[in-house]
Nucleic acid binder design. Sequence first.
RNA 1: GGAGAGAUGGCAGAGCGGUCGAAUGCGGCGGUCUUGAAAACCGUUGAGCCGAAAGGUUCCGGGGGUUCGAAUCCCUCUCUCUCCGCCA
Length: 423
Amino acid sequence: MLDINFIRANVDLLKTGMINKGEKDTNIVDKVIEIDEQWRTLVHEIDTKRSEANTRAKQIGALMGQGKKDEAQSIMKETSALKEEVKSLEEKLGVLATDRTELLYRIPNVPDPSVPVGHSENDNVVFSTWGEPLHHDWRKPHWDIAKEHNWIDFERGVKVTGAGFPFYLGGVARLQRALINFFLNAAAERGYEEMQAPYFVNEDSARGTGQIPDKEDMMYTVPRDGFFAIPTAELPITNFHRDEIIDAAVLPVKYCGYTPCWRREAGSYGKDVRGLNRLHQFDKIELVKLVHPDNSAQELELLREDAERLLQALELPYRTLLMCTGDMGFTQTKKYDLEVWSPGQQRWLEVSSCSNFEGFQARRMMIRYRDEDGKPKILHTLNGSGLALPRIVSAILETYQEESGKVRVPEVLKPYLGNNTYL
RNA sequence: GGAGAGAUGGCAGAGCGGUCGAAUGCGGCGGUCUUGAAAACCGUUGAGCCGAAAGGUUCCGGGGGUUCGAAUCCCUCUCUCUCCGCCA
């Protein structure tokens, strides 16, 4: 959610940003300003009337105290009429306020000037590449390797739960456990505090990070208790400080957390979903930062580097994309995607997405910091994966496979896997 | 799951239906004193919204109601605590 005052002062900038993000309808901006105008006028009117009513109520109190009942009675009569008036105006105000909020929720964040303008993923800019993508013919996709070793059981996953809920066995189960530990330790070294978060959140939290409204279809729900299964640890971790004011001196606040993530992925079919490419449940380590608004641009670069470091440590070739305006999403001002090379599939797989939301999320969640002047102000939030497991597993199985079919353990993971050479 | 008690400012803790945005204490900040610090003393110290400002308005767990007037009364929801039951 953007600040209505920012919207009022930056109509053109906002509309340009919206068009660049692929929104067709920018009239919503004029509409929200118009409704806000009505809202302000009405607030003023109501406040004035309430002020009057409050004054009279106090007069009545004073008169009653002096025993002047008759005078008090006559003021009471006038006041009840005033009260009716206020009540009907308040109803109007409520409607305006709801409309205003709904419109505000539908206005996307403004892209940072450094973001390339573009319509689709084809306009994303390759920011950097690391390592040499492998192109050997004999390399198999991970689903074949996993089958040979009985490492992943998709079929029984279907039986027990459904498609997209595989079982991991033996070497890959251990590999995932090792990756979780490695990622968390690496994050701790970079100053992120480890957090074990709830796997379900309530509606307020889902609203805070922006899954509600509009994106609730991505989440599994527990209707009886009003919970949502988290699609990413971003939800519980970012909402941790919801409705709080944080001392500026402790910024930046950095958290990391491992959780399973559940996504319904409704409507995604085809060959992209083969193997581990797209699952309904997967594991991820998430990095979250709450920062001073002056530093968020810088903090995004640091966050990206923290994520990239992990791929470098695993010696997996990858590339970093700077997402263009049309492909970056509703809530971000700037976003980098990290894509690992999958030699068995001969394609890039997204394993991390590092985003700056500036005040967009924090404003919804009312996460503020107290500056030197003592006034609470909205802070900036960022998050990034560090990293998502399944595609890393794919990349490891495919990159570290030998022609014999064995899979080597990446050097950096050996301490986590009994110093074994092979998985 | 059953029975009872409760939810007030950063924390603790008062609060008869009428000058209560809320006593008091602690903490925080500023000052006096001190070579410095502590102690003591004085002052100050919640948030949202409207407004250029003056000022106004809203908020005492959430929502609704009674009343001219609600932190105070009623309904409801949520949460916390105590006891019982169950349990990793």
